[in-house]
């Protein structure tokens, strides 16, 4: 079994207009910047993107939004140091936003991957976010029903992978990535290195390969924070 592909272009192949795409990361940590940029190059439109945030600056998710490829964003916190790209489109009514509390977003994705169509959470009870959602009482406390969240594709970032798709992560770059890997029809992972089968101790596997479909090596992945400090943009603007 070998899930590795040779290029970023090959990794994002088949993501078409109107697809739903989960993108891992929390802010810049764990954001698969190179896969997102490959998706910009591939050019599908009207995407529904699921991410915790709405991008920062003019690289990664912000760049994908800036290129007009995102019709709808499902996220918890569409603010950042430089959220101008999303903010302008949102205030102009050109992008749809579904705001989800962060823990609910994580659990909806987990439920999607786990085959649980709905669950009850205390989060958002009595708030505007809960409007129109079923409420039920358990042991005397009210809870709000939330539904699973699935997507056609997931773009995730991990540290080490093997040809079967087993993955490990690096520090807080784990965040949403293992959850999204479970919840998408096709999960595409960029990893800093691919090692031979058996080189990842089974005790240390965080995402078992069953959740992963394609693996591409990006040996020295860029950090969104670093790119933004350099004033970078994608596609690069000719000087």
């Amino acid at each position: 079994m070998d899930k590795t592909v040779a290029s970023l272009q090959e990794a994002v192949a088949g993501i078409g207009d109107g697809a739903s795409v989960m993108i891992g990361g929390f802010g810049g940590s764990g954001a698969p910047i190179e896969l997102i940029h490959a998706l910009i190059d591939a050019g599908p439109k009207n995407l529904t993107v699921i991410n915790n945030n709405a991008g920062n600056g003019h690289v990664g998710l912000a760049a994908l939004i800036e290129q007009g490829q995102v019709a709808k964003l499902i996220c918890s916190f569409p603010r950042s140091a430089d959220p101008k790209v999303f903010t302008d489109l949102y205030l102009a009514g050109k992008i749809e936003l579904e705001l989800v509390p962060q823990g609910t977003l994580a659990e909806r994705i987990r439920a999607g991957g786990a085959g649980i169509p709905a669950f009850y959470t205390p989060s958002s009870y009595g708030t505007d976010i809960a409007e129109g959602k079923p409420v039920a009482e358990f042991d005397g406390r009210p809870y709000v029903q939330e539904r699973w969240l699935k997507a056609d594709f997931a773009l995730i970032k991990a540290e080490t992978g093997d040809p079967m798709g087993n993955l490990t992560y690096r520090m807080a770059a784990r965040n949403f990535n293992p959850l999204m890997a479970m919840a998408a029809g096709t999960t595409i992972a960029q990893v800093s290195r691919v090692v031979q089968l058996g080189e990842i101790d089974p005790e240390n596997v965080v995402t078992p390969g069953i959740f992963v479909d394609r693996l591409v090596t990006v040996a020295e992945p860029k950090q969104e924070e670093t790119l933004n400090r350099e004033g970078a943009a994608y596609p690069e603007v000719a000087a």
Partner: peptide, 11 residues
């Protein structure tokens, strides 16, 4: 108005 953002506060 403006851009709403909730993050983890409701949890």
């Amino acid at each position: 108005g403006g851009v709403p953002a909730v993050g983890g506060a409701m949890d």
